[in-house]
Structure formats: C-alpha cells, structure tokens
Computed example of a mutant assay.
Amino acid sequence: MTNFTLNRRHILAGMGAAGAVAAFGRPAFANTKVNLGVTRLASHAPSYLAFERGYFKDEGLDVELKFFEAAQPMAVAIASGDADYGVTAMSGGLVSLAEKGAVKVIGGALAEEKGVVGNLLLASTKAYDAGLTSADKLGGHSFGITTAGSSFHYMIHKIAQANNIPLSEITLRPLQKLGAVVGALSTGQIDAWTIQANVANKLLASGAAKQIGVVSDYIPTYQVTTVFTSTKNAGDRAKTEAFLRAYSKAIDDYNAAFVDKTAGADEVDAIAAIMHKYIDMDAPAEEAKETLISGAMRVNKNCALALSSVEDQLNWFKSEGMVNKDINNEILFDTSYVEII
C-alpha cells in the first residue's frame, strides 16, 4: 500500500502539471492519432461526449471511434493495435490477452450503484407467461450471452448463485452480438437476459419482455465496464494520462446531467442530442432522450476502479477454467493511473 500511495502522489502531481500546461492552451503533444473502441450503448456516453465536445482534442489527441458489438472483439483489437483504448466489460478473452502481456486494465467506468437504475433482468414475454416471473425460477430456462466469459455470463452466474440454482441448470445461448440477443429475446428464442436499462426499457415498452429482477440486488458494487489499453500505451504516461483527463471531464458532464440531475435543462438536452447521434438513432430524438435518461447508470468519477469487483470477476474466470490460474493483479491491472475504490 505504501508504494501505491507514493505512486498516486507522483501521478496526481504530474497530471496537475499537465493540466496547467493545457490551461495555457498548449497540450503536451498535438494531433496524436488514437483509436477508441466503443459500442452503441449508453455506457459509452463519456466516449461520445469527450469526442464531440473536443475534450480529446484539447489534450492533443486526434481520436477516431471504432465500433464493436461485443467486449471480446474489442479486447482483440486493443491487443493487435487496431484500437488504442477501450471501455467495455472484462471478458475471459481480455484476461487471456493480459496474460500474454498485450493489454492492461487501467481504470473503471460503468458501475452498479444501489438507488441508481442499472442492468435489469428480463424474461421474454413468452417465458414470463409460461411462469418465469422471478429470478428464482430461472432453472430449466435459457439465457442469452454474447460469448462465454462475457459480462452477461458473469451476471447470470451471480444471479444463479444467489438463488441457489446450479448454473448447469440454465442453458446459456452464446449469440455473439448484442443485436442478436435483443432479437432472440424479442421473439422468445431465449427465455432471459440481463442488459443496461436504456436497452431494457425499449424491450419492456414494446411488450417483448418483462422485468423479473435488478442486477444490483445481486452484485451491488459491480464494476460493469473497465477502461483498458495495450501494455505499450499503459507505458506511455503522457498519452494515457491525457486520454484519462479528457474522458474524466466527459464523465463529470454525464453524471451531472443524467445521474445526479444537477445540470440545467439545456445541458441535459445538449448531452441527449450528442448521445442520440450514436445511440437509438432510429428513434425520435425526444423518445431517445427519455429512454437514455431513465436508463442512466453511474460512471465512476475520474475512472476510479472498484478493485474488489474486478478481482471477483478474475477469480470467477479462474474457477471456471477460462483463464490460467496463475494470472494475478499485477499481470491484469495497472493501478497507477486512477483511484482504487
């Protein structure tokens, strides 16, 4: 703990100095090309805000957004150099790439928080009408995931565990892409799924699904998504600190407008308009705004990392044989950049 405290002090001092330079209009470096991995979910709101509001440019970063439909392909892109930074859930694939020395988790983003709407547990209307009306009845039913070792896989593990249901009694259906899971739930091809509220609320409103639980009841401090990068970028302090500063500024905007409700109406409208360019584009702007606000989740201030949560996820990957049992915190995490909570 002593080493960590000293590192944090030096890092914060360095970030303060860099911030002072930026205040005089001189970023530490100009026009540095950066590819940022994103998905079209509300959890990526800070990515879009930092991009559209010029926060990345203010730090000298020329960011290009690269779109993905699942966590694992994003991790592969970071490892291969096709993307520089990513914000998504920890997956077995990400952990395995960290073991190979390719990636590092450097911060936290979306988080479950009691009292704030989070991921919802849904049953298809077909399954609900047939008796799947609560989480303790999931045994014998099917559940949608993108890939084995995804956040959806982890969430159903925790829900089943809390309800004393062996996970072997739930049929996992890996469908690779978020859109495919949405379609499968809507048509009753799978019985249940967990998803962020902005997506869940649309399924509920359409009559395609029924809510049968709230994930925060089972994982109240769940670090849903993390900020990660290549090991090479993790070693480039100036570049990575610049990225985190820009991202953190956008997090503050998002939380104030949608979670803490401390921003004015004009700011709420402005942020909703930016998000609508990337999320729920097919919906009318006002409808999308209401869905995004009603489904807002906390994003950790300054990308703080809930270490106990990601450690629990790592231990689960190990227990399921998805990753090498010898992987430890030092291999997976670089905790020198952000506050540990």
Rank of each mutant, 00 (worst) to 15 (best):
A209I: 00
K104Q: 04
I341T: 09
L12N: 11
I219Q: 14
K289V: 08
A296R: 03
A28V: 12
A250S: 10
A200S: 08
A23E: 12
N198E: 15
K158G: 12
K177Q: 15
E99I: 05
N328L: 09
K210Y: 03
F317V: 00
K325Y: 00
K33T: 10
F68G: 00
W193Y: 15
I165C: 00
K301S: 13
S124P: 03
V310C: 03
M281D: 09
L307R: 08
R237M: 11
F228Q: 02
L178T: 03
N198C: 14
T146P: 11
A250T: 00
V323L: 07
V76H: 05
T231H: 09
T88I: 06
L121Y: 14
K104S: 04
S151Q: 14
A246E: 02
N201Y: 11
S230P: 13
A123I: 12
D236S: 07
V103I: 08
G86Y: 03
V310N: 01
A263Y: 00
I170N: 09
A197S: 05
I212V: 04
V338F: 02
L305S: 11
P220C: 12
A246R: 00
G37S: 07
D217A: 02
T226S: 15
N163D: 13
G183A: 06
D252F: 03
T32C: 12
I212F: 09
S47G: 08
E99G: 15
E339A: 08
L244V: 11
K104E: 09
V215M: 11
D253I: 06
V224H: 15
S80G: 04
A306Q: 12
A109K: 04
N35I: 10
I78Y: 03
K210W: 08
V215S: 04
F228T: 01
A30R: 01
M155F: 09
G140M: 06
N233T: 03
L204D: 07
V299W: 03
T39H: 05
I274V: 10
T133G: 06
K158N: 14
H44M: 09
A70P: 06
N233L: 06
